[in-house]
Design a protein around this nucleic acid. Structure first.
Lengths: 247, 247
DNA sequence: GCCGACGAGTTGTCAGACAACGTGGTAGCG
DNA sequence: CGCTACCACGTTGTCTGACAACTCGTCGGC
């Protein structure tokens, strides 16, 4: 697919890395656009486009006539607006991710999953069920479903610890974005046993539908997280800046 | 403060409205950049900058040499990445928002709130505590804290049903973004009484710190939502597109 | 019928210019 | 000495025009 990302995305990525690396601290002023353009030997248009990306991400803020500044923004532990897997979620806290009780099979999905995957009810789909651990402690139950013609159970066992996203990308099914729904819940008997906690323990459930840029759903997942194992955060923009809902 | 938003933001807003209004359906191709520029009598640069904003929001996707297309994206009931108040959250579901048990006073905040507001522990701050209703049903408990020099208790009772954000904006304290943390929980005795539910009922708690573009914290809030009253969703981008965490 | 080349249309990048705005310094005034 | 008004400079915002890179339908040759 798209071999090289566009120039502005490369530039944005460079700047983002420099900022996150601490080279540019919050409140610092970025070099001026003409200067950045000269240093990298690109046009000012491209630099501007790149900075616009970062601005929309909330990483920097522009001030007309003054300069562009790195915004004061806390390092978010687990930014929900980014689509990471559970493994990177765990390793980002410094713990070692692991897997227990992995089950990979062809199953008849729950109705809501069939609906999300746009397959007729009753159609068998590939399912991957795992209990995830952090430094050995059981912290989450995850279930992934995808259409059997996209990934077969054999494909899944082959990838092992690799990301499902990577496996899908190899099949030209690049996940563009996912829509997640969050609901609190209590552990039922089965979940309590798998997670090795008392029945009724607090869980945060994340149901998610991942789709390509064309709107084709490729992956549906349900994750039950132990409430005290993670803190989920999200940056919320606005309120005035954008978005009004209409009836 | 910034009287007029920059041209590209105006253009982006227009396009966004047209798309959300259904004038441009998912999958549709936008008019070409030169055409949009000509129709609105602005330069192509500004149109490009506007579309770049929408692209980063995930509303449209560009394809080099082909065109710009509206992405397939479901209408999200309550997009967490947007910073709306509880009132608009309720009214967006078609119900009528209301308030019960409103308390507005000067209090000594919990330590985490004092920390977030960057005031010495023990400093009295303005606090607004409300039980929110939807069509009369009690659905959420919200508590807002802000520094007393920003908004006094008298200011708050004056605004009545108006938004706190609006009151802050009038004081040149424009909220740029907020960072929210989500945790599941069970209703304690007090919460159960206020919400008129059984003790132990499932709640979703949202702790949020709103700051200006300069990183000045202006509003801290804690909201306890009845789990079955709302569904919170968030769009998650990636995974490949952006963001790699580094140690 | 199939395949390759072509061309119109679109986005991506470049270059240079001027306008709008903030900021700091400086000269003038009280 | 302190304060204010003004001005020059740097930075971002927008405009104009051009060309490169790419997509996709079409048309001609085989």
């Amino acid at each position: 697919m798209s071999g090289t990302p566009s120039l502005r995305h490369q530039l944005a990525r460079e700047l983002r890395t420099r900022i996150h690396a601490g080279e540019l601290a919050p409140g610092d002023k970025l070099p001026s656009e003409p200067e950045l353009a000269h240093v990298r030997s690109v046009s000012r248009s491209s630099v501007r486009a790149a900075i616009t990306l970062l601005e929309e991400e909330g990483v920097v803020a522009r001030r007309h006539g003054s300069g562009t500044y790195v915004t004061h923004r806390p390092a978010l532990p687990n930014d929900l607006s980014r689509n990471f897997g559970v493994s990177s979620l765990i390793s980002s806290t410094g713990l070692t991710p692991g897997t227990a009780e992995e089950t990979c099979e062809l199953v008849e999905p729950p109705p809501w999953v069939a609906l999300a995957l746009e397959v007729p009810a009753g159609t068998p789909v590939t399912s991957l069920r795992r209990v995830r651990t952090a430094d050995g402690r059981r912290v989450a139950i995850t279930t992934d479903w995808c259409r059997s013609e996209h990934l077969s159970p054999e494909d899944l066992v082959a990838i092992g610890d690799g990301s499902i996203y990577a496996a899908l990308s190899a099949r030209v099914l690049v996940v563009h974005h996912g829509v997640a729904t969050l609901t609190p819940g209590n552990a039922d008997a089965d979940a309590a046993r798998r997670l090795d906690v008392a029945r009724g323990a607090l869980l945060l459930t994340i149901d998610q539908i991942d789709t390509t840029a064309d709107g084709v759903p490729v992956l549906v997942s349900r994750e039950h997280h132990l409430a005290d194992a993670f803190a989920f955060t999200v940056v919320r923009h606005g309120p005035g800046a954008a978005t009004e809902v209409q009836p």
